[in-house]
């Protein structure tokens, strides 16, 4: 304690400061020691516990919580059939397709930084990406090849789902969502084809959209089209291209469909698709085999939802 000033009975400023310094010499090291002790186990800090809501000791409860309390992982159930993790059953194609979609979104956003969807700049931007942008070439390559792989992934996923009869009750609706996702995957790939604005994309899209001319009723060369007043300037192909030929408007339209329109629709459908996988009873198998004699009897008990 600072001594009282004998003159007026008050504590002087200098003494107060001295006193504080004395106290600080004790307080701060004590706190520092406490802090260091605390850091030895960071899982007890407030920051950590605010992020991670449960412990990580290897207990069944924590394993379940690890999945259930994580927004990205809680798409999964906590537990699955022991045979469902076998690669030979699912081929992992649905997951791989989704992973490729994520890669495509990531590389696609980066590509968008360097690309202008205009006739003047589009092709030059691709050249610029190829020759000047750091890692631009591998960025474009990855986007291109991931797109092709995604098409293959969707096909193989669908093939597997068919071969395992996984579209059957109660998963009929999810198969339909899947078919729509197939269509949107192909459309994503196709709209991206035009964007480099080179001969390959131009003629591929010309060939592709020429078919729209022939749409029954809605195309000017299609059956009954001209009877309904369709011309090259008002038919469905005109709507797709924003013109009667593949030109600046077509480039802009396919850019917007490719980068904004279809990804949003496809993402929404993916959310529904994954949600329904869970709601329809998880992945379809490998389920116990059924015998001919049981075919027309409804399944009951634990085997009902593919076990």
């Amino acid at each position: 304690m600072a001594e009282e000033n004998p003159k007026n009975g008050k504590v002087g400023l200098v003494d107060r400061v001295k006193d504080d310094i004395q106290a600080m010499k004790v307080d701060i090291p004590a706190k520092a020691k406490e802090q260091i002790e605390g850091l030895k186990d960071p899982t007890k800090t407030q920051v950590y516990t605010s992020i991670f809501r449960h412990k990580h000791d290897d207990t069944p409860r924590n394993r379940a919580l690890g999945v259930l309390s994580n927004v990205f992982l809680h798409l999964h159930p906590a537990k699955i059939n022991r045979d469902a993790v076998r690669y030979s059953y699912t081929w992992g194609m649905g997951g791989i397709t989704f992973f490729l979609f994520i890669i495509l979104t990531y590389t696609g956003v980066l590509l968008m930084f360097y690309y202008h969807p205009s006739k003047v700049q589009a092709f030059r931007d691709v050249l610029y990406l190829e020759h000047d942008v750091p890692f631009g070439k591998i960025l474009r390559n990855m986007h291109r090849w991931a797109a092709h792989l995604m098409v293959i992934g969707v096909w193989l996923h669908m093939f597997r789902v068919f071969l395992t009869g996984s579209y059957k009750k109660p998963r009929e609706f999810n198969w339909n969502i899947g078919v729509l996702l197939l269509v949107f995957t192909l459309l994503l790939s196709f709209t991206g084809y035009l964007l480099p604005d080179d001969q390959l994309g131009f003629w591929a899209v010309t060939v592709g959209t020429n078919m729209a001319r022939a749409t029954p009723l809605l195309g000017h060369e299609g059956p009954f089209g001209s009877m309904l007043g369709m011309t090259p300037y008002n038919d469905v192909r005109f709507g797709l291209l924003g013109g009667s030929i593949v030109d600046a408007n077509a480039l802009l339209r396919s850019y917007i469909w490719h980068c904004i329109g279809i990804p949003i629709v496809a993402s929404i459908l993916m959310i529904v698709h994954f949600w329904r996988v869970r709601k329809d009873g998880g992945i379809s198998g490998p389920a116990p085999v059924m015998l001919e004699a049981e075919a027309d009897k409804p399944r009951r008990g634990p085997k009902a939802a593919g076990e």
Binding site: P60, R63, A64, G66, V67, L73, H76, P77, A78, K79, I80, N81, R82, A84, V85, Y87, G92, G95, E307
Partner: peptide
Amino acid sequence: QKEVHVWPFLLRIE
């Protein structure tokens, strides 16, 4: 056991 934990048995495969 008929079922296994997703963490780690499925997640490690993914």
